[in-house]
Simulated scan of single mutants.
Amino acid sequence: MIVLGSNSDVAVAFVEKILSGGEKFPLVYLFTSNVVKTEKLAQHYYAKFEQKCVVIDFDLTKENDFSKLNTIDSDLLFCAAGYLGKNTEEGLYDDWNTKKIVEVNYSKLIVLINHFAKKFEAKGSGTIIGLSSVAGERGRQSNFIYGSAKAGFTAYLEGLRNYLFHKNIHVMTVIPGFMDTQMTADIETPKPLTANPSQAATIIYKAYKKKRNIVYVTFLWWGIMMIIRNIPEFIFKKLKM
């Protein structure tokens, strides 16, 4: 298994879920920009599940050597890489903030996924699971830089799913709403609409086994976003969202 964004709370919960379900992998490749932290995570997986892991130092904000990835082989890629960044009010005109949001959530991320999608296509098997966000469902004034990157990522996954369907590869889009994770630790979220990583992992794992195309973490968000997507623009732009 290949895990992009391996230190993400949701990624950790999903790996634990799939390993506790009895699945074994020759190797689990943990992509990270924080090698020290991820080495401890690899030791945890081995101690708890006897699962061997390889830590791959790969920072999406830097130039990376893709040739070092040529020996990596797997039938499952789980992508939880992401960077929330500053909201619009704080970071709209912060060039570094904008650049990092776009690179980590979209522009450099899809190049990495494409590298493995090509491998999956060549052997005619595999599953790609990508975590996008409800923020990508409609541009909102509070975080439209992040939302635009996630919108692009959602569209990328949809197109990739349609393309690889004919190659016997499945692509699943996961759309979380509010999540109780490290990335949102400084944000107050309504508890009824907030899932924890374990809950998210269970929902994602079940959807993965059923080969779902799109899954919302929690179903309430499907209804909420359907309403938000259909608010007329002349009304929507007046709302503080």
Rank of each mutant, 00 (worst) to 15 (best):
L160A: 06
L160R: 01
R161Q: 06
R161A: 07
N162S: 08
Y163L: 09
Y163I: 09
L164R: 01
L164G: 02
L164P: 09
F165I: 00
F165R: 09
F165S: 06
H166Y: 13
K167A: 06
K167D: 06
K167L: 04
N168K: 08
N168P: 04
I169H: 02
H170L: 09
V171W: 08
M172P: 11
M172F: 11
T173R: 00
V174P: 06
P176G: 02
P176N: 01
P176I: 00
G177N: 01
G177S: 00
F178K: 01
M179G: 04
M179L: 15
M179F: 14
T181F: 07
T181V: 14
Q182M: 13
M183F: 12
M183G: 12
T184D: 15
A185R: 15
A185I: 06
A185Q: 12
A185D: 12
A185P: 04
A185W: 06
D186K: 14
D186P: 02
I187E: 07
E188W: 10
E188Y: 12
E188F: 08
E188V: 11
T189C: 08
T189Q: 14
T189N: 13
P190H: 02
P190R: 01
P190C: 14
K191M: 14
K191C: 05
P192H: 05
P192I: 05
P192R: 14
P192S: 13
L193A: 13
L193C: 10
A195D: 15
A195W: 11
A195V: 12
A195F: 14
A195G: 03
